[in-house]
Design a binder for these strands. Structure first.
Lengths: 250, 250
DNA sequence: CGTTGAATTGAGTGATGTCAATCGGTGTGG
DNA sequence: CCACACCGATTGACATCACTCAATTCAACG
């Protein structure tokens, strides 16, 4: 992993700035988190389960995932990570990381250490509250997936994943509408949805036959977005927020 | 739901105080959250999905759960709630609550409003960080359940639930060792583990036949705790924390 | 006692997993 | 440029885990 410096803005500030108007002091505190940057090659592991890290990261570019391995060798993908996401808060809290962070594409991350993060929390109460907000969004998104794994069919789970992926990608790249490059193998989709690769294949085919999606050369097109969202009981958890209770900017 | 006042200490402070030594200022801020209290009858709903609340709660006594209903009528229990847990942070963040809060036994909760919470976050950075920590613990516990639903068998999921329940109960009631009252119906266990009540029954029976647990009149006894934990890949997420990075007490 | 909700049990079904083979594309060494 | 190796996608046949439906038992409670 090569390490470098430079670049002006802050990815995290972009994400937070969409929700509230950041003060100059807040902005500069956030920029301090992204002063250094590091490349992570496709497939490379940024942090391994049960190891400790000593630093946090902000994902600046690319797609990553977090997963756990069970002792029978199977894998559960917990979450896909997009630019602006903070990586490794859970490994901050534990002596050993509860999950592995792995790059699905060529990525750029910005590492910063615990002390910097701790200072930020202390000196910028509103940012601290916003980080709590995003931690809750993530928690609720996890509960949606929990309900999907516990109570919905294979087809619905795959549909929900396709929809969610599109929405997350679009929040970085506004040019995406109903079509996007599916940069996951069917095995990865299976490990995220609790299915086998073989069955994921069948479900994709079925969605295609039913006219809900189209596929060619790795691109997915959502043909009936309304139908997909209804079938998948899908809610975009980055919408519908209420931040009126947040403290004043400092 | 009857409303009353009184009572001296703070449940939340008890929980947080196990991890760090709280300052007098922190202690009194936490006590302010539990000034009022309200009884919740067994089966009563404290907050309904898609409704908004205007207040948060601290669970002081009893057992509650949070769940979502899917549109086919099925239910997914997201989490069991124990004394000292903060209820409704996710409904603070959204205009409408993403989940329902419901009492599984006679409960006592302490309501407090958003402004009080917001003040606490602003004026006590270390408490704010600790709340973030507990939010992460909860998130990791959810990922454990996600992995269980996605990648483990019915028997293992039930075993994990039994173990986790015992551990959570013990953190309130130190007299519990290997035996405790299972205050859930088999349908509730099913809704938590993504199974049907019928299949939960069979799995309990199997665990019993294999000598891993014993049951009589609603009590469960863990006979082979080691074996259960190994089979269930169980990790107690309230252990193994690293809080050395926390800011100073104020 | 009757009623009710929960637990238990059996029989049959269906969704998803397993195993194995094939196909297609891509990169690599010769 | 070709042959090979490899990885992922695809497909079929079959196995199995968990669900459904239905009947019965059990315990608590009026």
């Amino acid at each position: 992993m090569g390490e470098g410096t430079g670049l002006s803005r802050s990815c995290l500030a972009d994400v937070l700035g969409e929700r509230v108007a950041l003060s100059p002091a807040e902005l500069s505190a956030l920029q301090r988190l992204e002063e250094r940057q590091r490349h992570v090659r496709r497939g490379a592991i940024l942090l391994r389960e049960n190891e400790s890290s000593g630093e946090l990261f902000i994902l600046r570019k690319g797609l990553m995932m977090s997963y756990v391995l069970l002792d029978d060798g199977s894998r559960q993908i917990l979450r896909f990570l997009f630019p602006g996401d903070i990586l490794g808060i859970s490994s901050l809290v534990y002596r050993e990381s509860p999950e592995t962070l792995c790059a699905l594409s060529e990525c750029v991350v910005c590492p910063f250490d615990y002390a910097t993060f701790s200072e930020l929390l202390t000196e910028h109460p509103r940012l601290s509250a916003l980080i709590l907000v995003f931690s809750q969004i993530e928690r609720v998104a996890l509960t949606d997936r929990l309900a999907a794994l516990g109570r919905t069919s294979a087809k619905v789970r795959v549909a929900a994943l396709l929809l969610d992926l599109r929405n997350r990608l679009r929040s970085t790249d506004k040019s995406i509408t109903d079509s996007y490059p599916l940069s996951l193998t069917q095995e990865e989709i299976g490990d995220a949805t609790g299915l086998t690769a073989v069955h994921v294949n069948r479900m994709l085919r079925q969605l295609e036959e039913e006219g809900l999606i189209a596929r060619n050369s790795g691109r997915v097109t959502l043909l009936d977005e309304r139908g997909l969202a209804r079938a998948a009981n899908y809610v975009d958890r980055y919408e519908g927020l209420d931040l009126s209770w947040l403290p004043r900017a400092d």
